[in-house]
Amino acid sequence: MANELLKVKNLKTYFKTEAGIAKAVDGVDFDILPGEVLGIVGESGSGKSVTSLSIMQLIPNPPGEIVEGNIIFEGTDLLEAYRRKDYDVIRKIRGNKISMIFQEPMTSLNPVFTIGDQVAESLVHHKGMTPKEARDYAVKMLELVGIPSARERIDEYPHQFSGGMRQRVMIAMALSCDPSLLIADEPTTALDVTIQAQILELMLEVKAKTSNAAILLITHDMAVIAETCHRVVVMYCGRIQEIADVKTIFHSPQHPYTQGLLASLPKPGQKVRRLSTIEGMVPSLFNLPKGCSFCTRCSKKHEPCENVPPEMVETAPGHFVRCHLAKPMQSV
């Protein structure tokens, strides 16, 4: 497909620590189409957040560093500019064409500036609005994300808002410049369960009302994926294990890890005493197995798994799996 919005090629982001080099993201390839909702799912430490922060070039350096790869956004190679130390390229895109919502709404807003100032800031910065125009636009955005009496509350400070309200403010802030890609890094993890669904719905609703931005949704919650995404990327230990559209993932998962994740979900109408789990622990990033990184926990482990790292195989159109068991689709 030639018209993808964002193309990530062989992205490698490493963290240099005293214990050695942690390969948090080790060769990730995927792309996002305009307007689609792509989910990245995986356990803690699978590299999903680092992937999203790498796209925004927000990896704290040191210790982190994007060591290899290309991120092509609307035809511009962001990482090529990064390697040239031309940070203006990403600065013009951040908050403007690509914006981001973070996991912690409680601390992601600056405590000493008013909500209005913070929403208006990127409008003044990217759209060249006057502070007056930006303020009016900010009120409009806050109304759009469902903040009651936005015109009065715009002069309040973050501590006067609840967690859910702050995440709404973050969404308003992120979507105010009409971005073409919105990265949402576990946007509902820190929220009350009752608020989570509201926020997800709101994101999709506001996206439809504004520039119909593509969304890269990072989560560890398969239910969230089922609810919102078109396509899913499953990550484990810094590598993509499986990519498919959401129906395929839920109905015919190929990778044992994806199968394990799905098996651990409770199923409505089915009476079980205990939910099934994936045995074992995520291996340390400093000490990954030589072959498939999932081999330490895999129930279908066989001969080559421990020594030969599996390649990505396309099992059906658009369905990629990194497993020795996966059978490539028959070429016609």
């Binding site: 925004m56 951040r94 973070f102 600056n110 000493v112 500036f113 990127s122």
Partner: peptide, 29 residues
């Protein structure tokens, strides 16, 4: 090191604005 500084960077603000407007205002308290 606070999250709101990352938010400010994610808005596309320059390092100067992030440090001198967002972080400094808080650290002067």
């Amino acid at each position: 090191g606070q999250d709101y500084v990352r938010t400010a960077f994610a808005k596309g603000l320059s390092e100067r604005t992030v440090i001198f407007k967002h972080a400094l205002r808080n650290s002067l308290i």
